[in-house]
């Protein structure tokens, strides 16, 4: 028993090391003075020069700004459409074409991005030929593409959240005289709110992170941050990208740690209250 525990611990430690060593090495070398990136310049490091360089790089900052805008819009669109799809699939029962809708919402989860990218581009080209919209490609086409593939993730999250609580809550609201729309806004929506938050964040991240689809459906002047990074790192390692990576990891890590701590505290508070209710509650 003891031995197996040890084995498990070792596997876990090795696995986590595998996941984190590359990230840590990027962080460390972002403070390296040497241009050679992976050779530590003992005399002049640590330094913040790459961070300074990064902040002076208007091209990267501009791309980052485009990415933020695209990601925020995509996340909002994906949450709205994904929530509708999730509610329709879990609560609306049988309707014609339900299986097809269900297939269309899960397919993007595993579809290789390159296929989605090509299909999207060809659609936009064909549309432009046929109706003149979208004239050329840019932020709007990237946003549409990102909404489409991110909404699949939101749908799954909303679906599993809805499946987790039983529909008698909604029935009770109807029974108490609430019309279906009221039920949706006062009961369903508050209950799935946590799923919407995580769905939004996930959709934002997916969009913020995507390079393949964006490459296909972007146009001149609408390069997103990942596209900029990709074209740079294809040419080789560059130290300011290390600095950029460090900043991004930092933001994400702080966010994830804070939200985990918050959720943990909420959970503890809740279980304490439940215990108390059980002890003092019985008449």
């Amino acid at each position: 028993m003891r031995q197996r525990g040890w084995f498990r611990g070792a596997m876990l430690a090795l696995g986590l090391a595998f996941l984190y060593v590359p990230i840590l090495s990027m962080i460390v070398f972002s403070f390296n003075n040497s241009r050679l990136v992976t050779v530590w310049d003992r005399d002049n490091s640590p330094t913040l020069r790459w961070y300074v360089r990064l902040l002076e790089n208007d091209q990267l900052l501009g791309a980052a700004w485009i990415s933020i805008k695209v990601a925020a819009m995509s996340a909002c669109g994906a949450v709205i459409l994904g929530t509708l799809a999730g509610v329709v699939l879990t609560r609306f029962g049988p309707f014609r074409g339900r299986a097809f809708l269900s297939a269309m919402t899960t397919a993007p989860l595993v579809m290789p991005e390159i296929i989605t990218g090509i299909a999207m581009l060809l659609l936009f080209v064909a549309l432009e030929q046929a109706i003149g919209w979208p004239s050329g490609r840019g932020m709007s086409t990237i946003t549409i593409a990102h909404i489409t593939f991110a909404m699949a993730y939101v749908t799954v999250i909303v679906q599993s959240r809805l499946a987790g609580f039983d529909d008698s809550l909604e029935e009770a609201a109807l029974d108490l005289g609430a019309k279906p729309a009221t039920v949706f806004f006062r009961i369903t929506l508050p209950l799935i709110a946590p799923a919407l938050v995580s769905g939004w964040l996930l959709a934002f991240t997916l969009s913020w992170d995507d390079v393949v689809i964006a490459q296909f459906v972007s146009g001149p002047g609408s390069s997103t941050l990942p596209m900029e990074i990709f074209s740079r790192v294809r040419r080789g390692v560059s130290p300011d990208i290390n600095a950029l990576a460090t900043l991004m990891v930092l933001v994400v890590a702080v966010g994830v740690v804070l939200s985990t701590l918050y959720m943990r505290r909420e959970e503890q508070r809740r279980s304490r209250e439940e215990r108390m209710a059980h002890n003092d509650g019985n008449p």
Partner: peptide
């Protein structure tokens, strides 16, 4: 905590994580 550690890299840029291996 462990789950958080597994998911955390997923929230950071996929591209940059692949790029990190170039340096390694």
């Amino acid at each position: 905590l462990l789950l958080m550690l597994i998911i955390l890299p997923f929230w950071t840029s996929f591209l940059l994580r692949v790029y990190a291996w170039v340096g390694l």
